[in-house]
């Protein structure tokens, strides 16, 4: 997995609550057997009209946000399905960090498996960042995962929380499966015990 240490980039504002996984990547793009190439269809139904032409008003179609690496959004971002196609599409577009007041559990988890950092901040701080993001390409937002801070170009700094294990994996770009396999002995022991206790499983 790609490491995430620091990021300085353009932030795109999406002041909507309940942005669901069907909006992030509609189902017609789930019919792939690959992880890559989904970026062009990120937010497809908001981004393109019925003829497949770009809708100029949509934030990621505006010239100043085409290179956005950070997304600022409303409450409950990523609610809905477990489709990892959502973080795949976000990453493939070039976004490495999403900031919102809250996230849906499964989406939040999926981000970390794909080198994306989801940051939950209190509403007022998200509001401040949303204003900042509305300034466009002139306002770069900086994320420092090690220090757990988000900084604006005016020098405002917000601290955020992140699970220590998830942080470690993201900083080092570690593969979960490899880590778990190092604990194979514990799994073997558990499996043998469980087979005794619950042989019907």
């Amino acid at each position: 997995m790609e490491k995430f240490e620091k990021l300085s980039g353009i932030a795109a504002p999406m002041p909507m609550i309940n942005i669901d996984t069907d909006m992030i990547i509609p189902k017609q793009f789930l019919k792939t057997i690959k992880r890559s190439g989904l970026g062009v269809n990120l937010f497809d139904e908001m981004r393109y009209d019925d003829d497949g032409k770009e809708i100029p008003d949509f934030v990621l179609n505006k010239p100043q946000y085409r290179e956005a690496q950070i997304l600022i959004a409303g409450d409950n971002f990523g609610c809905g399905s477990s489709r990892e196609h959502a973080p795949w599409a976000i990453k493939d577009f070039g976004i490495r960090c999403v900031i919102a007041p809250s996230f849906a559990d499964i989406f939040y988890n999926n981000c970390f498996k794909n080198g994306i950092l989801p940051i939950a901040l209190p509403q007022e701080q998200v509001d401040a960042l949303m204003k900042e993001a509305e300034k466009g390409a002139n306002a770069r937002v900086e994320i420092d995962l090690e220090a757990q801070t988000v900084s604006t170009s005016d020098g405002e700094i917000f601290a955020f929380e992140v699970d220590a294990f998830k942080k470690h994996c993201l900083l080092e770009g570690l593969d979960d499966i490899g880590l778990t396999m190092e604990k194979a002995a514990s799994i073997d022991t558990f499996e043998a015990k469980a087979a005794q206790a619950r042989p019907w499983v």
């Binding site: 973080p87 499964i106 988890n109 999926n110 499966i177 778990t180 396999m181 194979a184």
Partner: peptide, 17 residues
């Protein structure tokens, strides 16, 4: 529910972090 990376994790290890 789990994401695809976790599907792979469960397939390989029968556990979930």
């Amino acid at each position: 529910g789990i994401g695809t990376s976790e599907v792979e994790h469960v397939l390989a290890t029968q556990t979930l972090i």
